[in-house]
Amino acid sequence: MIISILIVIIITAIFALQFKDLLNAVIALAAFSLLLSLIFYLLHAPDVAIAEAAVGAGVTTTLFVVVISKTKRY
């Protein structure tokens, strides 16, 4: 279970690095964060899992999307 989630986490991290479109990269980073919080929960650290899900998947994604919406595409 944990091994397969870790493999998916590595795949999403590679996606987040390789995407040319920044919005796709941010979504991949949010998926990375959500799966990481699932790993924390499975490893009996629900406290860290809540913090990771709230900060990583929620606030950081919103801030990145706001910043991207202020840039222009050339």
Binding site: P46, D47, A49, I50, A51, A54, V55, G58, V59, T62
Partner: peptide
């Protein structure tokens, strides 16, 4: 809930505060 049950169950000041802040951010979205 996360703030007020922070000493009994997972959660606490930081996590509950982040959830409160993201609620206001969602409101502004």
């Amino acid at each position: 809930y996360l703030i007020s049950y922070g000493h009994l169950s997972p959660g606490g000041g930081f996590q509950g505060g982040v959830v409160l802040g993201s609620g206001i951010i969602l409101l502004s979205l």
